[in-house]
Write a protein that binds this DNA or RNA. Structure first.
Length: 208
DNA sequence: CACCAGGAATGTA
DNA sequence: TACATTCATGGT
């Protein structure tokens, strides 16, 4: 299984090169983006992020202090603004009360994941995205594209979230940089060959 | 016009 | 446990 996964990774990387997800931004911005991008295109998330930056509130403290109704207007381009405003408040408050980014990084990933999942607005994918992209934990992020990839290539009997996550984490070295790039590459590939183009002609995974 | 995007909460059976 | 519905903007 390890060879199959690495084969997929190598072919995706060869085709698309590094996706450099979430590089030159603050870690607080990564967490905020993880909430805003729930079922939303990244282009719309960037508009919301830009609004927050212009207001000088693209941070946990900024989110906590701003009026909720005001916050809704700033994140409006990202959609679901009523619930996401609440989710951002919940998340920012949790981070500020628990050591923020640097403080929380001292805890292990498993413990953090359980705590994140108790926050209203953070599910498994968002929790793992925060662990990987904001806290640099070697946690594999599973999304709809990843599930589809595993199903189409028949790489696992169980296709629930945790089973697929274990498939990657137990067969690959727990490397933050690897998991970071792998997930980004899966998304990059899926957007080109799985969404609006049912056919797989030209897909780097054709025949894998 | 329909469909979906770097999901999660809630309700039903 | 396994689905179905709701949330909302903006691009294709």
């Amino acid at each position: 299984m390890r060879d199959k996964l690495l084969d997929i990774y190598d072919k995706l990387l060869e085709r698309y090169s590094n996706q450099h997800w979430w590089p030159a931004v603050t870690k607080e911005e990564v967490v905020i983006g993880a909430i805003l991008t729930q079922n939303t295109s990244w282009a719309n998330v960037e508009k919301a992020i830009e609004n927050l930056k212009q207001q000088g509130i693209c941070s946990f403290a900024g989110i906590c202090n701003i009026d909720t109704e005001q916050l809704k207007t700033f994140i409006k381009p990202a959609g679901f603004f009523n619930q996401k405003a609440e989710y951002l408040k919940n998340t920012a408050e949790f981070f500020l009360e628990n050591g923020s980014i640097n403080g929380l990084k001292k805890q292990d990933a498993k413990t953090l994941r359980e705590k994140f999942l108790k926050i209203k607005g953070i599910g498994k994918e968002t929790a793992d995205s925060i662990l990987l992209y904001a806290l640099d934990k070697p946690v594999f992020v599973v999304d709809a594209y990843t599930k589809r990839l595993i199903k189409r290539h028949n790489l696992s009997k169980n296709t629930d979230y945790d089973s697929i996550q274990r498939l990657f984490e137990e067969n690959l070295e727990k490397d933050t940089a690897l998991f970071n790039e792998f997930h980004a590459l899966i998304v990059r590939n899926a957007k080109e060959f799985c969404t609006k183009k049912p056919q797989c002609r030209g897909c780097p995974l054709e025949g894998v």
